[in-house]
Design a protein around this nucleic acid. Structure first.
Length: 139
DNA sequence: GCCAACGTTGGC
DNA sequence: GCCAACGTTGGC
């Protein structure tokens, strides 16, 4: 089981919208970055990921599950761009902010800290556990 | 194939 | 709103 982090600007696609989609899930489309796409190619159905709000909020707000493996991005005809589907699994009782993450030395190696611009990124088992704890979230 | 210019992202 | 960092594009 691998863990991931999906970043979204709430103005474009928010956690509330994701939750409203329910078990049906939604395409994580619009990714136009090779690194991010390559990570999505590695994802398997059932993998879990954090849902992170960038810009104003800057916090991990919930957990999603990969509900469909990589497939063509329906928002473009360009065959280079593919995406997975994800569905909301649960909300964080206490969203974990970027400040929280930065102030914990155990999380200083997170991709979120090192390369804040990457919109889809891997999360290690340890990072996953720590952030779930901080958010008061139990699987 | 290199690198300057440009556009976009996202933290502050 | 500003600006740094990064990725991509395109001219040479």
């Amino acid at each position: 089981m691998a863990y991931w982090l999906f970043k979204s600007e709430p103005n474009t696609w928010s956690w509330d919208q994701q939750v409203a989609k329910g078990a049906a899930g939604e395409e994580w489309d619009g990714i136009r970055n090779y690194q991010a796409r390559n990570f999505m190619r590695e994802m398997k159905v059932g993998d879990l990921g954090f849902f992170y709000h960038s810009m104003k909020e800057k916090a991990v707000v919930g957990v999603i599950e990969v509900s469909a493996k990589i497939h063509p991005d329906s928002t473009t005809d360009d065959p280079r761009w593919e995406c997975v589907d994800i569905r909301a699994v649960g909300s964080f009782p206490n969203p974990v902010t970027l400040g929280d993450i930065k102030s914990d030395p155990r999380l200083s190696e997170m991709v979120l800290v090192k390369n804040s611009r990457l919109s889809v990124q891997p999360v290690t088992d340890d990072e996953w556990k720590i952030i779930c704890e901080m958010g008061g979230y139990s699987e």
